[in-house]
Simulated scan of single mutants.
Amino acid sequence: MKAIVVDEFCDPATVSTQVIDPPSAPGAGQVLLSVSGVGVGYFDGLLIRGDYQIRPNLPFVPGSSLSGRVEAVGAGVKHVSVGDTVAAFAMHGGMAEQMVLPAASCAPLPPGIDQLAAANFFISWATSLYGLREIGTVAEGETVLVLGASGSTGTTAIQCARALGAKVVACASSEEKRAHCLGQGADVAIDYTADDWREQVKQTVGGVDVVYDPVGGELAELALRLLKPGGRYLVVGFVAGIARIPLNLPLLKRCSIHGVNWGGSVMADPGVVPPVIRTLAEWTLAGRIDPAPTGVFELDQAGAAFAALFERRSLGSIVVRP
C-alpha cells in the first residue's frame, strides 16, 4: 500500500510516498481502518522535523488526526463495528491507505458527517472546543480574541466560539486572511501587524474575556493586556516562539493563564473524548459549524500541504486524502 514514510527527520515539505506492506490483522482491542482523510497540522510537521518534545522511532508514517472506515475489529472491541465511519487519533501512522490503531482512539460518527470534514475533528476542532468550553469556560455574550485566526487552529476557534454564543475578534496579517476570518463567522477582523492593533481592539470591543493563542511569541503579552478582570488566557501553541509573560500581569489584571493540551488531556483521561466529538458531530449536522476543509491534497501532494501550512499560505483546515 502507499504511505508517507519518514526515514530521517526532515523538512515536512520534502516528504514523499513509498510502497510499504499493508498492516496486519488487528489484535485484541484494535481496529483496521481504511483511511479517508488526514488532517495536516503543526504537530505532525514538528514530528517530521524531529522538533517535537517526543521523537518517534525512525522510520515512521506521520499523520495523527484522521477519519476512515472500519474494515476489521479485534477481540473485545464493542463500541465500533465493521463498516462504521470514525474519527480517530494516533501519535502517527495516519498518512497511509490503511492503519491499525487502538479502538479506544476511534469515535464513531453519525450518518451525514462527511469523512473529509471529520479528518480534523480530533486535533484542531477538538482542541478548540475543549479549550474554549471546558478550560476557558466561554459563556454566551463573552468576547473571544483569536490570534493566528486564519489557519486551521484559528478558524476552528472562531467557529466554536460563535457556536458557544461568544463575540469573536479575529487577528490576521493580511486582507485575504481577515476576509477569510469574517467568512468563518468572526465579528471583527484586526490586522495585528499594525502598530495600533491593540487600540483598534479596545475601540471596537473594549477588553476581551478570553484570548485563544496558538501563536505565542511577542504577541502574547500584548494580547494578555487586553483581558478584562477575570479573563482567561488560553495557551494553545507557540508557532512564533515561546512567549515571555511577566507574571505580575495576571496578578495586576486579575486574570488567569491556562494551557490547552488536548492530547495530554486525552491520554490522562480518555473520558474527555466522547462529549467533545459528540458535540462537534451535533453542531455539524445542525449547521452551527462547517468543518469542511478549505484545502484537499492527494497523498503524493502531502509535502505541498505541509509547505502551505508552514509557509502560512493556507487558509482554514487542510486534509490529505490517501
Rank of each mutant, 00 (worst) to 15 (best):
M1W: 04
I4M: 07
C10E: 15
A13D: 09
V15T: 07
V15P: 10
G27R: 06
A28T: 13
A28V: 13
G29D: 08
Q30N: 06
G37I: 03
Y42P: 09
Y42W: 14
Q53N: 12
F60M: 05
V61N: 01
P62S: 02
S65G: 13
V86Q: 02
A87G: 11
V100F: 05
L101K: 14
P102E: 09
A103D: 10
A104D: 15
L109R: 00
L116W: 09
A117P: 05
A117L: 03
N120L: 03
N120W: 06
N120D: 14
A126Q: 05
L129S: 00
L129T: 00
G131P: 00
R133S: 14
A139K: 09
T143Q: 15
V144W: 04
V144I: 05
G148S: 02
S152A: 06
G154F: 07
I158L: 00
C160D: 01
G165V: 04
S173T: 11
E176M: 09
E176L: 12
K177N: 12
K177T: 09
R178K: 06
R178T: 08
A189N: 09
I190M: 10
Y192T: 09
W197L: 10
W197A: 08
E199M: 15
Q200S: 05
Q200D: 12
Q200K: 10
Y212T: 04
P214K: 04
P214M: 11
R225Y: 05
A240Q: 10
P246M: 09
C255N: 07
G263C: 07
G271L: 04
E282P: 07
A286W: 11
G287F: 06
D290V: 00
P291Y: 01
A292G: 07
P293Y: 02
G295K: 06
V296F: 07
V296H: 07
D300H: 10
D300L: 02
Q301E: 15
R313K: 15
L315A: 08
V319F: 12
V320Q: 10
